[in-house]
Amino acid sequence: MTDSRPMDVPIIRLGDVLVTGLINELDDKAATAFAEELTERIAAERAKGVLIDISRLEIIDSFVARTLTELSTMARLLGARVIVAGMRPPVAITLAELGLQLAGVETALNAEQGMVALGWRHAPRPPEGGNRRETLG
C-alpha cells in the first residue's frame, strides 16, 4: 500500500525537524499512505520533531483525526515529538462538537509557533516574546 500511489505531500527536513502539511484533497488511502511514509522518514532520519501544518485543511473528520492521533503515537514511540499546527477555527469547533479531542496530539496556533515549540529559535523578531523556551541546534 505504501508506494501504490504518488505521494503529493512533500516532507521537508530542516535540521532534525521534519516539516510537512496536509491538504484538503487527501482521501483516506492517501492519508494512510502519508502517515506510513512520514513514520518511515522519522525512523530513517532520526527526527526529533515533526511539524504538520494543517492550515489548509477545511475539514477534519474522524478518519483524519484518527490518522493524526496514530501518527503522534507512532512518532512518540520513535522518539519524535509531533506538533499539529494551524487548525482553522471552524475545524476546531466542529471537531470539539464531534467529541474528537485528538488526545495526545500537540497543537500550535501556526507553523511558526509550532517550530518555536519544537526548539527552533525564531530569529527575525527576537525582542517580542522575551525569554522563549530553550533552543535547540
Binding site: E58, I59, I60, D61, F63, P90, V91, I93, T94, E97
Partner: peptide
C-alpha cells in the same frame, strides 16, 4: 455538500459542520 451549503447561505462554521457530518455518514 460544500457547494450546497454555500448556495444555501451557511456561514463558514456551519459549512464545516455539515461537510464533516456528510463525510462521516458517507464513509
Amino acid at each position: 455538500v460544500r457547494a450546497a451549503t454555500v448556495e444555501v447561505g451557511f456561514g463558514l462554521v456551519d459549512q464545516t459542520r455539515v461537510v464533516t457530518a456528510a463525510s462521516e455518514l458517507a464513509r
